[in-house]
Amino acid sequence: MNGPLSVATIIAALVLAAWFLLRAALNRPPSNVDLWATLALSALVLVLVVVAVIGLFDGSRPSDTPTFLGYLVTTVAFGPVAFYLARLEPTRWGSLILGVACLVLPVLVLRLQQIAEVTTGVS
């Protein structure tokens, strides 16, 4: 959970967040490229979550596995929900939706890391 994949996801999300917030501040609706970028980030998050789920089966588990699973479901659903809402809102507020989502995603990944650190079993 603490690998380069998480770091890459966090950095990508923060860079996109800065870009989307700038777009919202400049009163621009999400462009096609913006929406594709959101989907690409969602795909990266999906890979991260799949890796984390596979990790659950190799011995060490977070001691709070239910919470960990809850966060995994939320994390993987997050990008697509933001994408859906942004598609509905072709105004500056659509850009703000994507910006907010890209700010919350790193928090979710950090929380996943925190929960994963407390493990039971052999690590």
Binding site: V81, A82, L85, L88, E89, T91, W93, G94, L96, I97, V100, A101, V104
Partner: peptide, 13 residues
């Protein structure tokens, strides 16, 4: 709609 949709997302979170 508009800002309301942003609020919807944040309240949902």
């Amino acid at each position: 709609t508009g800002l309301g949709r942003v609020l919807l997302l944040v309240y949902g979170i």
